[in-house]
Design a protein around this nucleic acid. Structure first.
Lengths: 213, 213
DNA sequence: ACAAAAATAGCACGACCGTGCTATTTTAAA
DNA sequence: TTTAAAATAGCACGGTCGTGCTATTTTTGT
């Protein structure tokens, strides 16, 4: 999804605009994380990045494009911090556990103090049509598919019962992620990690002992 | 041109303002459900209810008070549609199941097309301080406590294992609620009900067979 | 019927919104 | 160094925001 046109330059293809754009995305993600997408206006981002309003606007072309770019930037962060490290783990159940463990609190590690942009966007844009809505659906489908594939790997390796409903399993894991997010950011509950991880093991145990109906 | 329909009012002091206020709250909840709290402005609500902006404003006194009133109205709806019916069920596991079943999709029954105002508010206000934030926390604590009490009733009746972690159990149920919400409203997945109910039974089974560590 | 009170409307203010336009500065290629 | 392109700033427009003020209408109690 990242457009990248390397011109004839040697090693020096980094135009200044690209760097500024990344700075803008960084400031924007901080805002998104705390205030939500709809509050990230061109003006607010201009103030946060000490650029002029028109300077910011020129980078994205529209307010919706800005929001989309922010969501895309968040996805890239998640890939770096959640997906890629989990791909290092041995396939199957171990990989599933690693993926889930890294999912918990990835925003904190990524420097987003206010929580997951996708969680925020999911409730902000669920009933609104537009490019953000579409991107959200595709993105969530991608992550759901990722989990389901790994679960089926674990089944193939005999780590989980063959009758496991991969889709249901995946959604229940995402439920735990949501729960963890609310416990952590709204309630500031120190048990959030413990209960989420415990929930994961509960689900795994159930999927090992016998199948769901 | 409205002739008085209030013939006599002894102790019946249903002033007109109250009725208008309720109409405003109803329109407001529709907006909240679809667009989120921050999008429910005085002006937008005025347009939706065909009142003047000042007319709307006078009912609440501030924008934040309006949002708070909307959240409170949503809580009242939830009480009527989720809590009160569940209190009719026999205490213990049956009551827990009834409560959870009524929780799923209560907004649809209550006429809120865009989803649960509390789910929306939880991600909109989790990192923002203010009266909404405080109300959210108190409200969520209330519901969590309600679930925990019922779970402990079920334990006392021998329907669940004594070593069940009521808090963890409750949070996992709320995770299922969140999951169901996203499946339903963002993904339009027809399996949402099935998977949520299946998840409930999975949790109950686990809590019956043996305790979580 | 009438006066008091409540409910609603009208208007104005400064602030911010998104976005188009032009002007200026900064950067990169020649 | 010159020059074209890229990046940024400045300004203006119509809108909406929340909220204070006064005016008007409608409802209510007597």
């Amino acid at each position: 999804m990242n457009t990248q046109q390397d011109e004839v330059c040697y090693a020096n293809s980094v135009r200044k605009g690209k760097m500024t754009r990344e700075r803008l995305l960084w400031h924007g993600l901080q805002l998104v994380s705390v205030e939500g997408f709809r509050q990230v206006s061109v003006g607010a981002l201009a103030k946060a990045s000490k650029l002029s309003k028109s300077g910011v606007f020129a980078h994205f072309g529209s307010s919706e494009a800005l929001q989309l770019a922010l969501l895309d930037a968040a996805a890239e962060l998640a890939n770096k911090d959640v997906f890629e490290p989990a791909m290092q783990a041995p396939v199957g159940l171990a990989q599933l556990r690693t993926l889930f463990e890294r999912l918990l609190g990835w925003t904190t590690r990524a420097g987003l103090p206010g929580g997951c942009p996708f969680v925020a966007a999911a409730s902000e844009f669920d009933d609104l049509e537009g490019s953000i809505h579409d991107y959200l659906i595709k993105s969530l489908e991608h992550w759901l598919g990722l989990f389901q594939d790994i679960i089926q790997h674990a089944v193939a390796q005999g780590e989980l019962d063959p009758s496991v409903d991969a889709k249901a399993f995946t959604w229940q894991l995402f439920g735990l992620y949501n729960m963890h997010h609310t416990m952590q950011h709204l309630m500031h509950d120190p048990d959030a990690d413990r209960i989420a991880l415990q929930g994961f093991e509960t689900l795994v145990n159930t999927a090992q002992i016998h199948a769901d109906a």
